[in-house]
Design a protein around this nucleic acid. Structure first.
Lengths: 229, 229
DNA sequence: TCGCATTTGTTCGTATGTATG
DNA sequence: CCATACATACGAACAAATGCG
């Protein structure tokens, strides 16, 4: 193990996880054990482990130990948010691209689930729409619930990730535009299309929803750039 | 700056980048400068910086300095690859989900570019298909070139990321199945649909392409799990 | 070509905070 | 309250890579 030194410590620790068949939640070797396993000092081991923590590959619990992580996509929020913010023109363009990817995914997905969304789920979606003016998170839950029946955990996390990044960057666009009425109408239209089991209408409703989101970005683009303190 | 200690060093460094308006490629403060700016020891600073490096937020050049990174999505390859591999059942299910997301994105995108792909681009695509039996990377370049005209850098990187992760994990499925003929036929069908400027046919051709990819995964699922050393 | 300064990479020793039994 | 195990943090020193005069 100490022999092959082409790989970085970070990569060697990942290889070690796979070799031992460690599954998410399993305890990692302690720092001292990693030191002797990898033939490296404590600080080098810690730097590698911190990098893996940033990637969600391990989880660290202070005073308790280090454990194999689930590599959930939400750990990538800082990276994506940084990417968007540091884009040209204050990141307006990057934000537009981000929303467009959400639109791509969700228009395609909504067409797939349009004919198979159950009655109880429709009722739950209705409830979320009703709470949208009060609860900010209702929108996030709405979009997650829409595609839950796909059984594709990755796409759910991707959509959640993009939602998080958008709502982290969006406040920098300027003063919040409260257009709750528009938003609610757009979401009701989506649910109505699902209830009618009409994939084409569902896709169209989704496009209209994102048309408004992109319009908000376009308005911010036209406005003078807010001075970044 | 030294005052507020609610945020982690990692977050404070990111905040510092934004406060100073540092753009990708710009030089970061040296480790010693970060020490005094953040009021932390060198080791602590290094651990935070290494985490940011893993996320692609900074780039480190030994003996030269640390620079603001581009947060390109390909740094997320280890995280996604780990996630797929550590999924239940050797990650077959997670791999299926991954390919399905690619399919979602690419079927939607191909419909968008079907009517606007220029002649020279079509010729370049033809050339890539012809080289696919020899050059493994030709497939990656093909899918990247398809959507280049969208002008959405994020979606290009996402598709590249998924391609990389798939081809990193795929060899663990078992012995390579060389079905170059099938692959070439599928890609030719896509180019033909673009040449005919037929979005519906393009989407269908893309579906057929991914149908074969998913079939390969399904065959691997039926096979006994290869013992992980 | 050489030597020097700068910067990151690695290691050691030590002390402190935290969770568990 | 104590003891143990673990992660966190700090300071100092030396090694290695890069750039420059």
């Amino acid at each position: 193990m100490r022999a092959r030194d082409g790989a970085s410590l970070q990569e060697r620790i990942v290889a070690l996880i796979h070799e031992r068949g460690l599954v998410p939640g399993a305890p990692m070797p302690t720092e001292v054990q990693l030191m002797e396993l990898l033939g490296a000092s404590r600080n080098s081991v810690r730097e590698a482990v911190q990098a893996l923590r940033a990637l969600g590959i391990v989880e660290i619990r202070h005073g308790h130990g280090t454990f194999v992580g689930h590599a959930s996509l939400d750990v990538l929020t800082p990276s994506l948010a940084f990417r968007v913010r540091s884009g040209p023109g204050g990141g307006i363009r990057a934000l537009h691209d981000l929303v467009e990817v959400r639109e791509l995914l969700e228009t395609e997905l909504i067409g797939q689930v349009a004919q198979s969304t159950s009655g109880p789920r429709l009722a739950a979606l209705d409830a979320l729409v009703n709470g949208m003016d009060r609860d900010r998170e209702a929108d996030r839950a709405f979009h997650a619930l829409l595609y839950e029946s796909c059984g594709n955990e990755l796409v759910l996390q991707l959509i959640g990730l993009f939602w998080d990044v958008y709502h982290e960057v969006e406040p920098t666009l300027g003063p919040p535009e409260e257009r709750t009425a528009e938003i609610v109408v757009n979401h009701r239209r989506i649910v109505a299309a699902l209830r009618a089991r009409d994939p084409g209408a569902a896709r169209e409703a989704m496009r209209l929803h994102f048309r408004d989101v992109k319009a908000r970005i376009a308005r911010a683009e036209a406005r003078p750039v807010p001075t970044p303190t």
